[in-house]
Amino acid sequence: MDTYVIRQVSVFSENRPGRLAAIARALQDEKINILAFSIAEADGFGVVRALVDRPDRAFETLGSLGFNVAFTDVIAVKMRDEPGGLYEIARILGDAQINIEYSYAYSGKEGAVLILRVDDVQSAIQALLESGAGSMESSAFQ
């Protein structure tokens, strides 16, 4: 099951101009590719979430620059890139009583991909595999 668990890099960031640029610049300098990312914002601060091709290197690089970084386990699911694609995935997880804490998506050359942070990673993977929707292996990213 662990082959389906993907390590997302989560970076604490104050909400002020230039912080995202500083993070992106650091990743560029290390030639780390960002596959998907999102920003979550609260009262004056936020968390930058990114799926990158080399998470350990990203963690080290950002950490050495003083950023506060943590790994978060997420899963990724391929969606049909047409109406109803998101519904299908959301329904499977809902039926399995799995709560989605947050999610972000991208549509790339391999189709539409949904990244999910759920309350129960193992059960979510199981439900997706059993339903036939499938769960993407982490090796697809990292």
């Binding site: 997302q8 604490f12 979550a40 609260a42 009262d43 936020g46 968390v47 970084v69 943590a70 978060t72």
Partner: peptide, 18 residues
């Protein structure tokens, strides 16, 4: 300042600390 060791990566945990 947030204490480096207590950053879990989750926004909700940060809000709780705040």
């Amino acid at each position: 300042e947030i204490n480096r060791e207590y950053f879990s990566g989750e926004l909700a945990d940060l809000s709780r600390i705040q």
